[in-house]
Design a protein around this nucleic acid. Structure first.
Lengths: 192, 192
DNA sequence: TCGAATGTCTAGCGATGCTAGGATTCGCAT
DNA sequence: ATGCGAATCCTAGCATCGCTAGACATTCGA
């Protein structure tokens, strides 16, 4: 029995290695540079090994996206819980979100820009994605205002953050004004 | 002289044909299906002809993006001018923007999701892109509120719209709630 | 009418995601 | 310890991608 367990452990290790390497490579040189050949070379295995873990490149991107969603959820929660009061909580959350997107552009792309083959809308949405949304909802729901569905409010706020993250990374919005934009968002959207 | 003029006209016609065909193909089957071979076949020329008009596939995407920007600008202006008062203007503008994104997903992708090789932030930003932003600014600037830079406000509002468009297309947000989200955005962000 | 210039196509390069099929290694029963 | 079956891994290759060199045809100007 212990032999099989060791093998399973090694397999799981290798799978983590693949995801971590893909992420590292993507952050260093962009997702275009993450080819199956380069990835295989970096993990010191041949290409087909990748396909014994993942159905294809898309699924690898999806795995990175899930990892990123978990990290983002915890980053958002940490920032929110460190702030006092609804107002500070909202701005802290927003800044944490944008900070995560800026520090992990490739991961953010995997989550929202690229096709990771993830089911988003339906019930079979992976847990990390639902949890990341829940992390936003926890802090944003309390400032939705009367008569506004917390989920709907969170979606709109999230959309605004996503737009800011995307456009900033595209060079469209100068990064130094991020603080003022977040202030504007929090002042106007949130009901305090 | 008239011979050269005819040739130039034919060349310009063919260039328009390339862009229109690329756009059509992208809307029908997605940008992944827009390969240089398929595109060449559809316009009934060989691949190298494409490269006598554009530096590469990126530039073709960029051309579609510019065409889309011009259309979006006029769609936004039309919607805004047909509405009475700032409040109605803002919601009409927002709905027109989202409607454009929904009806022309491939064009919207070319504008914001894909790499069309367009210079965005700098001064050499192509005129249609600047004009599309200007179309937003015209209506949104008047509801920025006191002490808020109209450009900054427009950026934030635009980011929110962009996020809504993106997330809706990804299947993350149910389309039937678009109206309520727009109402929320207009109610909260705009100062009337 | 003929050389030159312009325009177009055929063929091919390197690289991509992905896979079939053979080789090798490994665990386990004898 | 040994030999066999199975699991594991790699070599080699396919179709397709964006892109380009060089041959071919066509048209223009003298």
């Amino acid at each position: 029995m212990s032999v099989q367990e060791r093998k399973q452990r090694e397999r799981a290790d290798r799978e983590r290695l693949i995801v971590a390497t893909a992420r590292e490579l993507a952050e260093q040189q962009g997702w275009d540079a993450v080819t199956t050949r380069r990835l295989a070379e970096r993990i010191e295995y041949s290409q087909p090994v990748l396909y014994s873990h993942f159905r294809g490149k898309r699924e690898i991107i999806g795995a990175v996206a899930l990892e990123g969603a978990a990290e983002m959820a915890s980053a958002v929660r940490a920032a929110a819980s460190a702030a006092d009061g609804p107002r500070a909580r909202v701005t802290a959350l927003a800044l944490a979100y944008l900070d995560f997107a800026e520090r992990n552009p490739a991961v953010y792309d995997a989550m929202f820009r690229l096709d990771g083959g993830l089911a988003f809308a339906h019930e079979d949405t992976p847990e990390p994605l639902k949890d990341a949304f829940a992390a936003l909802l926890e802090s944003l729901g309390e400032v939705a205002g009367d008569g506004v569905h917390p989920g709907l409010f969170t979606e709109v706020f999230w959309a605004a953050l996503h737009g800011l993250a995307t456009l900033t990374r595209a060079g469209r919005l100068p990064p130094q004004d991020t603080g003022r934009r977040v202030e504007l968002l929090a002042d106007r959207l949130a009901v305090l």
